[in-house]
Write a protein that binds this DNA or RNA. Structure first.
Lengths: 356, 356
DNA sequence: GACACGACGGCAATCGTTTGCATAAATGTC
DNA sequence: GACATTTATGCAAACGATTGCCGTCGTGTC
């Protein structure tokens, strides 16, 4: 049905190996012959079968891209950039989604491993051990995760968290909450570490709450807790959660930024259309996608690359942050230490209680 | 390096064909033998090479999905659904993006055609002739486009337009504007046809304006025109445009929905987070993704399927629509609830000119 | 005019699977 | 007990390409 190299060879009156060389090793075939081959190939509409080529060369010219959730607006720009970068280098991108499930994640890497030259694994939820294991089976580049010995592209969330806290402190906030991301997120740990450090440096209180779902629902669910904590400003794991939080606060009659300031992370399109417009820490997602693809492809050539790239973030101040309200006792809500931190029994946080 | 069927055969003490059959035709191999094969395969971590299998079976177990722009929030839910549906049927999805370029679109279909079993082509920008041509080279299922003789999944935008117009009429609007989509869009033509019909049926005026860019910018650009038209309600081509329009109207001092009601189409996540929340015609994007994949896979089996599926839409009433203002010349800036304009001092001068 | 050398292009093995056919063993039938 | 029938497995030819090896020219050199 489809036209193969054999058809072209027959039509051009040469051996199939000549056809093959006309494409992949032009200098080995006479210019005239080559021209004839190329023109008949064109005429017949011949396209080399990449699968067959992959079988012998071992290179598929495909790369896999695994994300936790395509519908999370953080990812599309990354995918888009990776896609176009890959196309520039004559590769195609396989996108797959894990639904935030570590098991699905491992499964996908394995399933993809044979039909791609390498995999860009974004925001993995697997533990380091499992990732190292997978990296033995197929070239891997990590995004939003750092594992010793493995190439990775990360956002400098630590820097971003510092910027956010500093901004809030400069606005006069002294009691800040941090809504962390999902369990197993490297980014979340980094953010927490840096935020804690920045808060300590400035001598302000930081209430850490989590893990939370990195979605609107996660933000909505955390609203009550935030109000109870007495914090006048909140840094969230991502924009989605920030937007959910604003929604949740709104339902509780708490206004943003008048009563509580909110800062998101990622600078997704959402933050530009909500009201109030979201102050956020912009992460260079497109650049990350490009960098990951570049590393992966070069990785294939130079054997093991283990570069660890960290990309700068930037604070974008919009309308969801302002100075805290005057220091009169807030609302009628007495200090109500609400439900315990998520399902996570992890480190005990000082919680609740309207602090000074 | 990787473990092949030969390694398993050797380790299990059987011929490779037995190993192959142990997987793909279990009834042809003795239960005991099969158990041994399976266990040694497991032990060695054997995974069949899909590319090699594809070479001989002609089925890659991959499907291609081509969209105009991944970053358009309309697509991710569709991709996500297609992805998970494909996985359920043991297939993987290749996502590619055309950047709205018909040439890239054709190129991608061709490049993908050899490594996938079929392609889901979403919102194509190519003309019917070119699409028919491509459909001859590889099984194709269209989304958001209907071409005679080709299987397709479309949204019933006509019905949606009817719902929207009826809703506005019921609210008391008698003068409605329609902002159409890009030139050549099948969806836009359908919407226009149905809206015109519904307006005529109800005896209300319909001002059609377009073509417009299906983006925020397109909406912003159309704002002035809308104000000039004197319409009290607007139906737009999609949510993005509706959100842009609201922004544009806001800049002109026209409030939504107090002065003008706006209805979008698609029910993207954006409409749920903007203020006012967007009234919109929800298109079942996830269902469309699933349906397209189903049709494609069944397509492969049953030879040529040419089913044309049309999915119902649904009106979701939120806060961007209300009754039209009293028919006296508008503008009294009486009860203006929350401050509309943020602290961002963009170009938000409250221009007072009454738009008759 | 014989020889060596490059350039060109054919031959055939190979990649990892599947699958029609053949063979061998086991079972059933009379 | 001979023959037909089933069942389980091996054999080898594909699938569509790449590539090392080798033969055959034509040309340049002495």
């Amino acid at each position: 049905m489809a036209v193969t190299i054999r058809d072209v060879a027959r039509a051009a009156g040469v051996h199939i190996s000549t056809v093959s060389r006309a494409f992949s090793a032009p200098h080995l075939v006479h210019a005239e012959t080559r021209a004839k081959v190329l023109s008949t190939a064109e005429e017949l509409g011949y396209r080399p079968n990449r699968a067959a080529r992959a079988l012998i060369t071992g290179r598929t010219h495909n790369i896999g891209l695994i994300v936790a959730d395509i519908a999370n607006p953080f990812f599309p720009p990354l995918i888009k950039a990776a896609e176009s970068q890959a196309r520039m280098r004559d590769h195609h991108v396989f996108v797959a989604e894990t639904d935030e499930d570590p098991l699905v994640e491992a499964e996908l890497v394995q399933a993809l491993s044979k039909q791609v030259d390498g995999i860009v694994l974004c925001s993995p939820r697997l533990n380091n051990g499992a990732i190292e294991q997978l990296a033995r089976e197929v070239p891997l580049v990590l995004v939003n995760r750092r594992v010793p010995g493995l190439p990775s592209v990360t956002m400098d969330v630590a820097q971003g968290a510092g910027l956010a806290i500093d901004h809030l402190v400069a606005d006069g906030h002294r009691d800040i909450a941090l809504l962390t991301g999902p369990r197993g997120s490297w980014t979340s740990r980094e953010q927490r570490r840096a935020a804690t450090q920045a808060a300590a440096r400035s001598g302000v209180r930081l209430t850490v709450t989590g893990p939370n779902q990195p979605t609107e629902e996660g933000g909505i669910a955390a609203a009550e807790h935030v109000v109870g904590s007495g914090a006048t400003a909140v840094l969230t794991y991502n924009d989605l959660m920030a937007i959910g939080l604003i929604e949740g606060l709104d339902r509780l009659g708490t206004r943003v930024p008048a009563d509580v300031s909110v800062i998101g992370v990622d600078d997704t399109i959402l933050g530009r259309v909500t009201r109030p417009r979201l102050t956020t820490v912009a992460t260079p997602t497109a650049a990350a996608g490009r960098a990951a693809v570049d590393m992966l492809l070069q990785h294939g050539d130079d054997r093991r690359t283990t570069a660890q790239v960290s990309l700068q973030t930037e604070l974008i101040v919009r309308d969801s942050t302002s100075a805290p309200p005057p220091r009169t006792p807030p609302h009628g809500h007495a200090a109500a230490p609400p439900a315990v931190d998520g399902t996570d029994g992890a480190a005990a946080e000082p919680r609740g209680g309207a602090a000074t």
